[in-house]
Design a protein around this nucleic acid. Structure first.
Lengths: 147, 147
DNA sequence: CTTTTTGCTTTGAACATCAAACTAGTTGAT
DNA sequence: ATCAACTAGTTTGATGTTCAAAGCAAAAAG
């Protein structure tokens, strides 16, 4: 129990910070920062691909995203597509080059997930999922409370 | 099983980012960025408090740290202390003001940890801990491999 | 038709970060 | 003892990220 506290605390303190850094190095995509990779990922996985929606997903302002999209467009990973029905709206599309990156990123995450799944029995896995859902719910509420 | 992968993956992808953001907002120490708070935390918890060691702990260059320490010194959170035995070495010390911040930060972590522990059953907790250890191990290996 | 709202972009400022050049102090080889 | 090589830390210039605020164009509301 005591141990649980310190493990979870340690995770909250260090592991989370480490992950971004390691991810960046492991992916090692010259010419793309981890931020840019996350933008690409968001674009690839987005249901709604207009600027405002993506900015919301990424928790940045549309201004910030606009800058990022411009450079990623210049680098050949994204393109802007104006909607005919409502010409204010811009949809962001991933190019084939971006999809490549996305697949590599996905593979990294699968590996990471595999490390967890590998050590647990099916039953434990189920328990873990319940636990993670609870934690997720907790943090979503927390976030709501801070609005 | 399929579901386990995608749940765990989703949590690993989003939850981690969320927590950083929540932390930043919840701490909300006017005049201090989350980076600066992390520097303060590192100084408070450091075994070896010279520049090089701290920079290593924080995974930044000594140049970056030097800049950060200068502003935190100006703001009254840290002071530089030259070593007598080897006058090249600078030890960074926390002021009382910094210790206050550190205590608040620690309390926040304890609260968050307590909340997580509180919402899980003992069994869930045990499984979660094993999973987290596994992630930790995975990343430590990964980091080693990348050196 | 204005006016207001909406969606996005641009701009200016603040910060974080790094690499490389620099300063000062120590160590090692001769 | 000297001087070269090394080590610890700082400074500087460039780049990237972010935001708020102002701007612009299209759509909706009145």
């Amino acid at each position: 129990m005591k141990q649980a506290y310190s493990t979870i605390n340690q995770v909250l303190v260090t592991l989370f910070n480490d992950i971004l850094r390691i991810e960046e190095r492991a992916l090692n995509t010259p010419g793309l920062s981890i931020r840019e990779i996350h933008v690409i990922e968001a674009v690839c996985g987005a249901k709604d691909s207009r600027m405002t929606a993506l900015a919301g997903d990424l928790h940045v302002t549309t201004g910030s995203l606009s800058v990022a999209v411009t450079t990623l467009e210049r680098k050949g990973y994204l393109r802007r597509e104006r909607r005919l029905k409502d010409r204010r709206v811009i949809d962001i599309r991933a190019t084939e080059k971006a999809l490549d990156i996305q697949r590599r990123h996905e593979q990294f995450h699968n590996e990471m997930t595999g490390a967890v799944v590998g050590i647990l029995s099916p039953q434990e896995l189920e328990t873990l999922m319940r636990a993670l859902h609870s934690v997720d719910r907790y943090f979503n509420n927390k976030e709501m409370a801070l609005q």
